[in-house]
Structure formats: structure tokens, C-alpha cells
């Protein structure tokens, strides 16, 4: 039973890690593009904005279970398999990209337009504005968005698990639910709760440190991050 729990935890972490990775990789450019092509923005482009917005909305409105099924051929094309943790990463990432893109867009919208204007007045171009103003200024909000995305993906990965994706969801469903191993099911659920809580705490900690720049001496930021990072593996071993 213990190795079973351990393996499935690793599977869940594998799925969440890689789908978050792709969500960030594609979600940030998509969010930036959504923001910049909006009306009155720097690269105002109604067509691009509407098309991208529509794709994002369609992606977000799919029930995740349906999305997994619909994406089976695509998943097979990309990673060669459609089941197991590897197969689950594709639909998880596809679901997370538009979700994260909207969060990025919202985060960028909160950046004071005066800062963009200041950069323009200095002669800064679009890239300068993206990489030196928008993204650094939105960093705390972006970290909060990643936190939310990771937590959402933990939940989604459990659904993926139930339909053959492996991981804790699979464990809870096949052993806990179908074989009436209530204690195992409870253990799994508790582990998911712990996981979600830890991610949220870690995310909040980083956001606070980033947003608090300047309100306290700057060195504790890094100390805080380092301390925070060591918390994560510790939590996993403890749960396992």
C-alpha cells in the first residue's frame, strides 16, 4: 500500500508539474497578446484579440472530462500514448493554458498605465514594455496566478486519474472507491488537501515577499524564497 501511495503521488506531481510548465510557457505569451491587442492598448488589433479571446473561451468552457476524450487523437499524436500520466499531461496543459492566459491578462491589466507611458516616453519599444515593465511589475500577480493554476491542475489531475491518467485520483477511485478501501480513499483525499494547502501557502509567501519589495529590507526576500523552496520536498516526503 505505501509504495502504491508513493508512486501515485509521484504521478500526480509529474502531471501537475508538466502541465503547469506548459500552461506558463504558452499562457504568458497568450495573456500578453490578449492584453496588448485589447482596445486602446499598445498593439490594438481587434481581429487578433477577438480570435484569441474566442479560442481561450472555447478552451475554458469545455468540461474537463469531455476535453480528455476529445483530445485523445491529438494526445496520441503528441506523446504517443493517450493514457497514463504522460497521456494526461496533454489535456491538462490544454485546459490550463487558456485558464492561465486569462489570469495573466488580468494581472497585466492591473499594471499602472503610467508606467507603460513612462517607458514609452524614454523611447522604449514594445519588447521593452513587455519585459521591463509589464511582466516584472505584474510578477506578484503572476505568481498568484500560477498558484491558482497549480491548485486547479491538482484537482483536474484527479479527474484525469479516474479515467486512466494515474496519480492520486486514480488511486482514490480504483482502490478507494471501487474496492471499498475507505481508509485509502481518505488518506488520498487528505494528501490532496495537504498538497493544495502547501501550494497555496507557498504561493502566498512568494507573493507577499515580491509585493513587499521596498517595504522591508531587500535581503529577506531571497532568504524567504530559499526557505520556502525547502518546504516543498519536505512536505512531499512527509506525505509519502
Amino acid at each position: 500500500m505505501q509504495p502504491l501511495l508513493y508512486d501515485n503521488t509521484l504521478d500526480t506531481l509529474f502531471m501537475v508539474w508538466w502541465s503547469t510548465f506548459y500552461a506558463v510557457l504558452f499562457g504568458i505569451p497568450a495573456g500578453v497578446l490578449l492584453h496588448l491587442t485589447d482596445r486602446g492598448a499598445l498593439l490594438q488589433n481587434v481581429v487578433v484579440n477577438k480570435v484569441l479571446g474566442a479560442i481561450v473561451n472555447i478552451g475554458r468552457s469545455f468540461p474537463f472530462l469531455i476535453l480528455i476524450v476529445v483530445l485523445i487523437p491529438f494526445t496520441r499524436l503528441v506523446v504517443g500514448v493517450s493514457i497514463g500520466p504522460t497521456g494526461a499531461v496533454v489535456p491538462l496543459a490544454i485546459a490550463a493554458i487558456p485558464f492561465f492566459a486569462r489570469l495573466v491578462e488580468a494581472a497585466l491589466r492591473e499594471v499602472d498605465h503610467g508606467l507603460v507611458e513612462a517607458a514609452q516616453a524614454m523611447g522604449g519599444g514594445t519588447w521593452t514594455i513587455i519585459f521591463k515593465v509589464l511582466l516584472p511589475q505584474a510578477l506578484p500577480a503572476l505568481v498568484a496566478a500560477v498558484t491558482t493554476t497549480v491548485i486547479t491542475l491538482i484537482g483536474y489531475s484527479a479527474i484525469a486519474g479516474a479515467v486512466g491518467g494515474g496519480g492520486l485520483g486514480n488511486l482514490a477511485y480504483t482502490y478507494g472507491y471501487q474496492q471499498y478501501e475507505t481508509s485509502l480513499m481518505i488518506t488520498t483525499v487528505v494528501e490532496l488537501i495537504v498538497l493544495v494547502t502547501l501550494v497555496q501557502l507557498l504561493g502566498d509567501l512568494i507573493v507577499r515577499r515580491l509585493a513587499g519589495r521596498g517595504t522591508r529590507p531587500s535581503s529577506p526576500v531571497r532568504v524567504g524564497l530559499r526557505r520556502a523552496r525547502t518546504e516543498e520536498p519536505a512536505a512531499v516526503t512527509e506525505a509519502a
Partner: peptide, 27 residues
């Protein structure tokens, strides 16, 4: 359009501007 070309950006970099709300990057 709203985008400034290279020439305009070069010209702007030699015109300083200060703002009411300072517009400093908090990051």
C-alpha cells in the same frame, strides 16, 4: 498607429519626462 517607430523612439530618448505620480517601477 500607436506604436512608435525606431526614429520616434530615438527622438523620445532625448526628451526627458517627469510625471505627477512619478511612475517609478516598484519592482
Amino acid at each position: 498607429g500607436k506604436r512608435a517607430g525606431a526614429q520616434l523612439r530615438a527622438a523620445r530618448s532625448h526628451i526627458g519626462m517627469v510625471f505627477q505620480h512619478f511612475n517609478l517601477l516598484s519592482s
